[in-house]
Simulated assay, not measured.
Amino acid sequence: MKTASLCGITMALTLALGCSNGPEELAEEAEGFALLRHDAATLEATYHSGGTSVRALLVESAPNVVEVTYDFGDPVIGFRVDYNQGEGHFMPSGSPLDAAQSRLISGLAEGIAKAVPEQDTARSRVEDAAVRQTTFMQIVPVGEALTPYRYVAERGWVHISCTCGSQNIGGYTRQAGRGCSCTGGSGQGCKGRCGQGCGITSTPNCVGSTAYTQDCAKHDYGLGSFAAASDDYSFASNNCSCSGVGSCY
Protein backbone atom coordinates (compact mmCIF):
# COMPACT_ATOMS: atom_id res chain seq x y z
CA MET A 1 0.00 0.00 0.00
CA LYS A 2 1.35 3.43 -0.82
CA THR A 3 1.69 5.76 2.12
CA ALA A 4 -0.18 9.03 2.05
CA SER A 5 0.75 12.68 1.77
CA LEU A 6 -1.69 15.54 2.11
CA CYS A 7 -1.49 16.14 -1.64
CA GLY A 8 -1.76 12.47 -2.60
CA ILE A 9 -4.12 10.79 -0.17
CA THR A 10 -6.88 11.00 -2.77
CA MET A 11 -7.63 13.04 -5.85
CA ALA A 12 -10.84 14.05 -4.13
CA LEU A 13 -8.96 16.06 -1.54
CA THR A 14 -6.86 17.82 -4.12
CA LEU A 15 -9.86 18.76 -6.21
CA ALA A 16 -11.84 19.89 -3.22
CA LEU A 17 -9.32 22.07 -1.44
CA GLY A 18 -5.95 21.97 -3.16
CA CYS A 19 -2.60 21.28 -1.55
CA SER A 20 -1.46 22.40 1.86
CA ASN A 21 2.08 23.46 2.42
CA GLY A 22 1.92 22.22 6.00
CA PRO A 23 2.57 24.14 9.20
CA GLU A 24 4.60 26.85 7.41
CA GLU A 25 1.29 28.31 6.28
CA LEU A 26 0.18 28.54 9.91
CA ALA A 27 3.24 30.29 11.30
CA GLU A 28 1.53 33.66 11.69
CA GLU A 29 -1.78 32.32 12.94
CA ALA A 30 -2.92 32.80 16.50
CA GLU A 31 -2.45 30.12 19.12
CA GLY A 32 -5.26 27.65 19.58
CA PHE A 33 -8.04 26.19 17.47
CA ALA A 34 -9.31 27.58 14.17
CA LEU A 35 -12.13 26.19 12.06
CA LEU A 36 -11.22 26.94 8.45
CA ARG A 37 -14.05 25.24 6.58
CA HIS A 38 -17.17 23.41 7.68
CA ASP A 39 -19.94 22.29 5.38
CA ALA A 40 -21.91 19.14 4.58
CA ALA A 41 -18.99 17.40 2.86
CA THR A 42 -15.87 19.06 4.30
CA LEU A 43 -14.34 19.95 7.63
CA GLU A 44 -10.96 21.64 7.86
CA ALA A 45 -9.43 22.86 11.12
CA THR A 46 -6.08 23.69 12.66
CA TYR A 47 -4.59 23.76 16.12
CA HIS A 48 -1.46 25.80 16.79
CA SER A 49 0.54 25.80 20.02
CA GLY A 50 4.10 26.57 20.99
CA GLY A 51 5.39 26.78 17.44
CA THR A 52 3.86 23.47 16.34
CA SER A 53 0.70 22.98 14.31
CA VAL A 54 -1.61 20.33 12.95
CA ARG A 55 -4.10 20.74 10.14
CA ALA A 56 -7.04 18.32 9.95
CA LEU A 57 -8.83 17.90 6.64
CA LEU A 58 -11.85 15.64 6.13
CA VAL A 59 -13.68 15.29 2.84
CA GLU A 60 -16.59 13.01 1.98
CA SER A 61 -15.19 11.98 -1.42
CA ALA A 62 -18.14 9.68 -2.20
CA PRO A 63 -21.34 8.89 -0.28
CA ASN A 64 -20.29 7.49 3.11
CA VAL A 65 -16.58 7.47 2.22
CA VAL A 66 -14.45 9.95 4.18
CA GLU A 67 -10.83 10.83 3.45
CA VAL A 68 -9.03 12.12 6.55
CA THR A 69 -5.63 13.79 6.87
CA TYR A 70 -3.72 15.11 9.87
CA ASP A 71 -0.84 17.20 8.53
CA PHE A 72 1.96 18.06 10.94
CA GLY A 73 4.30 18.89 8.05
CA ASP A 74 6.20 15.74 9.01
CA PRO A 75 4.56 13.32 9.62
CA VAL A 76 1.31 13.26 7.67
CA ILE A 77 -1.19 10.69 8.93
CA GLY A 78 -4.15 9.74 6.78
CA PHE A 79 -7.22 7.54 6.99
CA ARG A 80 -9.74 6.38 4.44
CA VAL A 81 -12.95 5.28 6.15
CA ASP A 82 -15.47 3.51 3.94
CA TYR A 83 -18.74 3.09 5.83
CA ASN A 84 -20.34 1.31 2.87
CA GLN A 85 -17.80 -1.52 2.97
CA GLY A 86 -17.13 -1.27 6.68
CA GLU A 87 -13.39 -0.89 6.25
CA GLY A 88 -10.74 1.65 7.05
CA HIS A 89 -7.16 2.29 6.03
CA PHE A 90 -4.48 3.81 8.27
CA MET A 91 -1.92 5.57 6.08
CA PRO A 92 1.02 7.25 7.85
CA SER A 93 3.85 8.97 6.03
CA GLY A 94 7.11 10.45 7.28
CA SER A 95 8.71 10.49 10.70
CA PRO A 96 7.29 9.06 13.93
CA LEU A 97 4.84 11.26 15.79
CA ASP A 98 6.61 13.20 18.54
CA ALA A 99 5.28 14.23 21.94
CA ALA A 100 4.73 17.89 21.04
CA GLN A 101 2.73 16.92 17.97
CA SER A 102 0.69 14.40 19.92
CA ARG A 103 -0.25 17.05 22.48
CA LEU A 104 -1.83 19.13 19.71
CA ILE A 105 -4.49 16.49 19.17
CA SER A 106 -6.27 17.10 22.49
CA GLY A 107 -6.81 20.76 21.63
CA LEU A 108 -7.88 19.85 18.13
CA ALA A 109 -10.35 17.25 19.44
CA GLU A 110 -11.87 19.71 21.89
CA GLY A 111 -12.24 22.38 19.20
CA ILE A 112 -13.90 19.98 16.78
CA ALA A 113 -16.24 18.71 19.50
CA LYS A 114 -17.45 22.26 20.11
CA ALA A 115 -17.91 22.90 16.38
CA VAL A 116 -20.19 19.91 15.68
CA PRO A 117 -23.45 18.72 17.29
CA GLU A 118 -22.89 17.04 20.65
CA GLN A 119 -25.16 14.09 19.90
CA ASP A 120 -23.80 11.74 17.25
CA THR A 121 -27.27 11.24 15.72
CA ALA A 122 -27.30 14.92 14.73
CA ARG A 123 -23.88 14.88 13.05
CA SER A 124 -23.12 14.59 9.36
CA ARG A 125 -20.89 11.72 8.22
CA VAL A 126 -17.89 14.09 8.02
CA GLU A 127 -18.61 15.55 11.47
CA ASP A 128 -18.86 12.12 13.08
CA ALA A 129 -15.68 10.96 11.36
CA ALA A 130 -13.90 14.12 12.53
CA VAL A 131 -14.79 13.41 16.15
CA ARG A 132 -14.01 9.69 16.02
CA GLN A 133 -10.77 9.80 14.04
CA THR A 134 -9.39 12.76 15.97
CA THR A 135 -9.94 10.98 19.27
CA PHE A 136 -8.34 7.88 17.72
CA MET A 137 -5.30 10.04 16.93
CA GLN A 138 -4.90 10.52 20.68
CA ILE A 139 -3.83 6.89 21.05
CA VAL A 140 -1.49 6.71 18.03
CA PRO A 141 1.91 5.82 19.55
CA VAL A 142 4.55 8.51 20.01
CA GLY A 143 8.12 7.91 18.88
CA GLU A 144 7.36 4.68 17.02
CA ALA A 145 7.66 4.01 13.31
CA LEU A 146 4.13 3.74 11.94
CA THR A 147 3.15 1.41 9.14
CA PRO A 148 0.00 1.29 6.98
CA TYR A 149 -2.71 -1.26 7.73
CA ARG A 150 -6.30 -2.08 6.90
CA TYR A 151 -9.03 -2.70 9.47
CA VAL A 152 -12.54 -3.99 8.98
CA ALA A 153 -15.79 -3.61 10.88
CA GLU A 154 -16.86 -7.17 10.10
CA ARG A 155 -14.36 -8.46 12.65
CA GLY A 156 -16.71 -6.86 15.12
CA TRP A 157 -16.33 -5.54 18.61
CA VAL A 158 -17.67 -6.51 22.00
CA HIS A 159 -19.43 -3.85 24.03
CA ILE A 160 -18.91 -3.77 27.77
CA SER A 161 -21.24 -2.49 30.46
CA CYS A 162 -21.66 1.25 30.85
CA THR A 163 -21.73 0.85 34.63
CA CYS A 164 -18.29 1.10 36.20
CA GLY A 165 -17.25 -2.18 37.75
CA SER A 166 -15.08 -5.25 37.42
CA GLN A 167 -15.60 -6.54 33.88
CA ASN A 168 -14.31 -9.12 31.42
CA ILE A 169 -12.42 -7.13 28.81
CA GLY A 170 -11.43 -10.04 26.61
CA GLY A 171 -9.39 -12.51 28.64
CA TYR A 172 -8.68 -10.03 31.44
CA THR A 173 -10.73 -8.74 34.35
CA ARG A 174 -10.43 -5.02 34.97
CA GLN A 175 -12.49 -2.11 36.22
CA ALA A 176 -14.17 -0.37 33.29
CA GLY A 177 -17.17 1.79 32.49
CA ARG A 178 -18.39 5.36 32.70
CA GLY A 179 -17.23 7.84 35.31
CA CYS A 180 -14.23 10.02 36.00
CA SER A 181 -13.48 7.87 39.06
CA CYS A 182 -13.51 4.67 36.97
CA THR A 183 -9.72 4.59 36.69
CA GLY A 184 -8.90 1.02 37.66
CA GLY A 185 -6.54 2.51 40.22
CA SER A 186 -4.43 4.56 37.83
CA GLY A 187 -4.63 6.96 34.92
CA GLN A 188 -7.73 8.59 33.54
CA GLY A 189 -11.29 7.49 34.17
CA CYS A 190 -13.91 6.22 31.75
CA LYS A 191 -11.85 3.06 31.18
CA GLY A 192 -12.97 1.24 28.05
CA ARG A 193 -14.27 4.31 26.25
CA CYS A 194 -13.35 4.58 22.56
CA GLY A 195 -12.51 8.23 22.87
CA GLN A 196 -11.00 10.83 25.12
CA GLY A 197 -10.74 9.76 28.73
CA CYS A 198 -11.59 11.88 31.73
CA GLY A 199 -9.68 12.80 34.86
CA ILE A 200 -10.75 12.22 38.42
CA THR A 201 -11.35 15.91 39.13
CA SER A 202 -12.35 17.11 35.67
CA THR A 203 -15.86 16.99 34.30
CA PRO A 204 -15.53 17.38 30.53
CA ASN A 205 -18.21 17.47 27.91
CA CYS A 206 -18.75 14.42 25.73
CA VAL A 207 -15.79 14.29 23.34
CA GLY A 208 -15.67 11.47 20.86
CA SER A 209 -17.93 8.46 20.82
CA THR A 210 -19.77 6.97 23.76
CA ALA A 211 -18.89 3.43 22.71
CA TYR A 212 -17.33 1.25 25.41
CA THR A 213 -15.70 -1.94 24.13
CA GLN A 214 -13.29 -4.69 25.15
CA ASP A 215 -10.57 -3.65 22.72
CA CYS A 216 -10.68 -0.03 23.90
CA ALA A 217 -10.51 -1.20 27.51
CA LYS A 218 -7.58 -3.49 26.72
CA HIS A 219 -5.74 -0.58 25.12
CA ASP A 220 -6.46 1.62 28.14
CA TYR A 221 -4.73 -0.96 30.34
CA GLY A 222 -1.81 -1.56 27.97
CA LEU A 223 -3.09 -5.04 27.14
CA GLY A 224 -3.93 -4.44 23.48
CA SER A 225 -2.59 -2.39 20.58
CA PHE A 226 -3.97 0.83 19.19
CA ALA A 227 -4.40 -0.95 15.85
CA ALA A 228 -6.68 -3.57 17.40
CA ALA A 229 -8.98 -0.79 18.58
CA SER A 230 -9.15 0.90 15.16
CA ASP A 231 -12.47 -0.62 14.09
CA ASP A 232 -14.00 0.11 17.50
CA TYR A 233 -13.10 3.79 17.25
CA SER A 234 -14.34 4.15 13.67
CA PHE A 235 -17.39 1.90 13.59
CA ALA A 236 -18.59 0.71 17.02
CA SER A 237 -22.10 1.86 17.85
CA ASN A 238 -22.57 4.13 20.85
CA ASN A 239 -23.90 1.85 23.59
CA CYS A 240 -23.55 4.33 26.46
CA SER A 241 -25.38 7.65 26.39
CA CYS A 242 -23.75 10.91 27.37
CA SER A 243 -25.01 12.24 30.68
CA GLY A 244 -24.88 15.84 29.53
CA VAL A 245 -22.74 18.92 29.08
CA GLY A 246 -20.37 19.61 31.93
CA SER A 247 -20.73 16.16 33.45
CA CYS A 248 -18.74 12.96 33.48
CA TYR A 249 -19.74 10.38 30.89
Rank of each mutant, 00 (worst) to 15 (best):
G73N: 13
A229W: 05
V81R: 00
A227M: 11
S186W: 12
C190E: 12
D220S: 11
Y47T: 07
I112A: 10
F235N: 06
V65S: 02
V65A: 09
S186D: 13
N205D: 15
C198I: 06
R55K: 15
Y172M: 03
A56Q: 11
N21A: 14
S202N: 13
G8V: 00
L97D: 10
E28A: 14
G244A: 04
L43D: 09
N205R: 12
T3I: 14
R193T: 01
S53D: 15
T213A: 10
P141Y: 05
Q196T: 05
A16C: 11
C164M: 11
Y149L: 06
A130I: 06
L104P: 06
V140C: 01
Q85A: 14
L36Q: 13
H48K: 15
R80A: 06
A12G: 15
Q175L: 09
D220V: 08
G86N: 01
K191V: 08
P204T: 02
V76Y: 03
W157F: 06
Y172I: 03
V81Y: 05
A227T: 12
A211T: 09
S166D: 10
D98M: 03
V76I: 11
A99G: 00
I169D: 01
E24Q: 13
C248L: 03
N64R: 15
G22K: 08
P92Q: 03
S241N: 11
K2R: 13
E67S: 14
A30H: 11
I112N: 07
Y151S: 07
V116G: 12
S49Y: 09
F90G: 02
T163W: 01
G18V: 09
T201N: 13
G86Y: 00
Y151T: 02
Y233K: 12
I160R: 06
F235C: 07
S5K: 15
G143I: 04
F79V: 05
G199K: 10
Y212A: 01
A217K: 02
V65I: 14
A4I: 10
A99E: 14
G195Q: 08
G222E: 07
G18C: 06
V207E: 08
C162D: 02
S247Q: 13
I105L: 15
G78V: 11
F90A: 01
T203S: 12
L13C: 09
S230K: 04
T147R: 11
T201P: 00
K218L: 13
S102G: 13
V207K: 05
G73H: 08
S49M: 10
S237N: 05
S166H: 05
Q214N: 03
R155P: 00
T121Y: 11
N21F: 10
A41H: 12
G165A: 15
D215T: 11
S241W: 06
V54E: 11
D98Y: 06
V59G: 04
Y172V: 02
M11Y: 07
R150K: 04
Q175S: 15
G192H: 09
G208E: 07
H159S: 14
S243Y: 03
F226Q: 14
R150A: 01
G50I: 04
T10N: 14
S95R: 08
F72C: 07
C7I: 03
Y47G: 08
N238T: 02
R150M: 04
G177F: 04
M11C: 09
W157R: 12
E118L: 13
S102Q: 15
S241E: 12
V76H: 00
P75S: 04
